[in-house]
């Protein structure tokens, strides 16, 4: 669909000039416009941001995400959402290249949008995406001791429910009593619960043996 009003046309033309890409448009039932532009790479982000800023756009927010569902997928992208009157323009930047899913760093757009500061710090710590030329590259929500992108790392359920901290505490209690319960290798990889990767292998469990259920009643009648 094409832009339908003057405001959309201005944004459309500015982005076309800056990125050589056409914006796609959708509309809600009240005819509020939504522009969708997908850049080829991060190189075009700065010109696009500059063009939007010069036309009075306000940065609404940014969304970092993995494009495909699945534990092995790492194709990350960032959607930058801008508002201009009744128009929202979403500029999406893929962070991967053909054959390489490792996310590339993105340039900061804080030069044009002051409120990009918190957004960029958030996706850095949550998704491990690096930012170039950020003026204040500190953690926003997560503590400095946590690895970047830790929120998207896989933590096996078994690691949680085994209660590493509880086991550690139990081992300390027993050690104080002079009892060694840590097994032959001296550890289950639990000395540093914050370290990665945590060895979550468990000692083999002996299968209990049961008396087979007889199809007939025992002779003594019990």
């Amino acid at each position: 669909m094409t832009p339908t009003n003057k405001s959309n046309e201005i944004v459309h033309d500015a982005l076309l000039q800056a990125t050589e890409l056409a914006t796609q448009w959708t509309f809600d039932v009240k005819q509020n416009a939504f522009g969708w532009l997908r850049l080829n790479n991060t190189e075009s982000l700065r010109p696009a941001a500059k063009a939007l800023a010069e036309n009075g756009a306000r940065l609404c927010t940014m969304t970092a995400y993995v494009e495909e569902r699945g534990e092995n997928s790492n194709k990350k992208a960032i959607a930058y959402h801008f508002a201009l009157a009744n128009t929202v323009v979403t500029v999406t930047v893929p962070l991967y290249t053909a054959g390489c899913d490792t996310p590339v760093a993105v340039p900061s757009i804080t030069s044009w949008f002051r409120n990009a500061d918190w957004n960029e710090r958030e996706f850095h710590e949550m998704f491990g995406i690096d930012i170039v030329d950020h003026p204040n590259p500190k953690r926003l929500f997560l503590d400095e001791r946590l690895d970047a992108g830790i929120m998207s790392s896989l933590i096996p359920f078994s690691a949680m429910v085994h209660g590493a901290a509880t086991r550690n505490l139990w081992e300390q209690v027993m050690a104080a009593k002079g009892v060694d319960i840590t097994g032959s290798d001296g550890s289950y990889g639990l000395e540093n619960p914050h370290g990665a990767p945590t060895d979550i292998s468990t000692p083999p469990i002996e299968e209990p043996t049961f008396t087979p259920v007889s199809a007939t009643a025992p002779e003594n009648g019990n």
Binding site: C60, Y65, V66, R69, H81
Partner: peptide
Amino acid sequence: GELFYFIRTDESDIPTRLKWR
């Protein structure tokens, strides 16, 4: 003030991404 929501879906009934600001 302005509340913003962004959603991405695939063909399932579970969103692949939900963001709010």
